[in-house]
């Protein structure tokens, strides 16, 4: 009997060892460029995406188990932190920058407003260890996860090994974030010839192409480069942008160009969230002081917009909202985590 059992266990182990990974197909339109992320080092797998989702929504990643990634990157806000200029972390501490929206990350080379992070896999280390965000260490996070049945089982099913390492944890988080693709806005449906812009949206689209497209380049609506937004320094924050990373004088006050997709869900705007409304952003870029600054820079074109043109432009920008992305059930809080948390209580 015991021999049969041993044989059965052996066969089961062989089966698990050769279990085919559940391949996750990243879907995106044919007019999107080739992703920057190197999937060969971390091939998408449904079970890893799901494990990444668990980790993304679990406050266990923070020192006092109160703040998860989703606390500042909520699915209903296109994974930004709506209505907060600066996000708050553990012990109600306030950070120094506006939480950027998380989607189409596979097409980005650098992360954070100043590009301090060079790879999506390594991004989570920054908020986990920042004292005003999660205030944790990756070593302690792994200790905590290793004590949970849910994670021991999840890591075993995903990696065929229940031992949790930094590499596995970070790559699983990447997998979930890579699955966040927003490409079903009205703009996208127009590109796919499924619908048409209104007259006002068409006018706005032409204005966008004339004045905004060089930095907020289609179809991702950002060139993901670093540029000066010409905002006066907030003396309470003293944020010099990319200069902190490169120490090069030309990078002082440069910030990463954000995407314009899903703008309705991601307010307030700019690196410190100082503008609550889109028209405030347009007023900033068309102000006399900015025009004077742009005239000094040969790479920049002065933006002239009438009040009617601003309305037209905003009407086009609103076609970049992707409700199917924001309300996608695959991106929401995982039920299994809710059950786990109830179990704790």
């Amino acid at each position: 009997m015991s021999r049969r059992l041993a044989t059965l266990i052996f066969i089961l182990l062989i089966f698990m060892a050769f279990r085919e990974a559940k391949i996750y197909q990243l879907e995106y339109p044919n007019y999107f460029p080739k992703p920057e992320y190197n999937f060969r080092n971390n091939p998408l797998d449904s079970s890893k995406v799901e494990l990444g989702r668990l980790l993304f929504f679990d406050p266990i990643l923070s020192k006092d188990n109160s703040i998860s990634c989703a606390s500042c990157h909520s699915p209903y806000n296109a994974f930004a932190h709506t209505d907060h200029d600066l996000s708050h972390g553990i012990y109600d501490q306030i950070g120094t920058r506006n939480a950027p929206a998380l989607f189409n990350l596979a097409w980005q080379k650098t992360f954070m407003w100043d590009g301090a992070i060079n790879h999506l896999d390594m991004q989570a280390l920054a908020p986990i260890s920042d004292s005003t965000e999660m205030g944790e260490t990756i070593v302690h996070v792994i200790e905590k996860l290793s004590q949970k049945k849910l994670y021991k089982e999840s890591f075993f099913l995903t990696y065929q090994d229940s031992i949790i390492t930094g590499e596995k944890l970070l790559k699983a988080l990447s997998q979930f974030q890579l699955s966040l693709v927003s490409s079903n806005s009205k703009y996208d449906r127009v590109r796919k010839q499924e619908t048409e812009f209104t007259k006002q949206e068409t006018k706005g689209y032409h204005l966008f192409q004339q004045h905004c497209n060089s930095c907020h380049a289609e179809p991702l609506f950002s060139n993901y480069q670093f540029s000066k937004n010409e905002l006066p320094l907030d003396s309470g924050l003293n944020d010099f942008g990319r200069f902190k990373v490169t120490q090069q004088e030309e990078d002082r006050f440069k910030f990463k160009v954000p995407t314009l997709r899903n703008l309705s869900f991601t307010f307030p705007y700019m690196h410190d969230g100082r503008f609550k409304k889109l028209n405030k952003v347009l007023n900033h870029y068309t102000s006399e002081s900015i025009k004077a600054q742009f005239k000094k820079d040969p790479k920049k074109k002065v933006i002239e917009l009438s009040e009617d043109e601003k309305v037209d432009l905003i009407s086009f920008l609103l076609t970049l909202n992707d409700k199917s992305f924001v309300f996608n059930s695959k991106h929401q809080f995982p039920k299994v985590l809710l059950e786990e948390m109830k179990g704790i209580k």
Binding site: N42, A116, N118, S129, G166, E167
Partner: peptide, 24 residues
Amino acid sequence: TNVSGAFGGDLDPTKGMYWSWQSG
């Protein structure tokens, strides 16, 4: 290697030899 994402073994960030606030 510095710009190629997460690795295990001696390169695992749990070894305390990876900056978190800035990659590297």
